[in-house]
Amino acid sequence: MEMTKLSGSLRALLGCGAVLAASCLVSTPALAQSKASAAIPKGPGSLSGVWVSPRFSNVFKADEGLGGVETGGRRRYRAAAAVGS
């Protein structure tokens, strides 16, 4: 059978070898992508919520490393718990 006649997922599976077949199938890019896109809220109603820059968690970690959590205030305590959830 020619490779060109196989589906993308099957081609990826064969490319990974028989021994690693199961784990390889799970990590097939096409499957992973469809799982991720299914979990993304889209359109009206999808934007509601509280948002912060991703750099926010780094700010907390930097403060923690310096022992500065106490002076960082309540905001950082709460945010750390929320980000870590």
Binding site: G49, V50, W51, V52, S53, P54, F56, S57, R75, R78, A79, A81, A82, V83, S85
Partner: peptide
């Protein structure tokens, strides 16, 4: 352009 992270239990102060 920038991207942001959702924080479910965070409240504005």
């Amino acid at each position: 352009r920038d991207s942001f992270q959702r924080v479910p239990r965070l409240r504005l102060t």
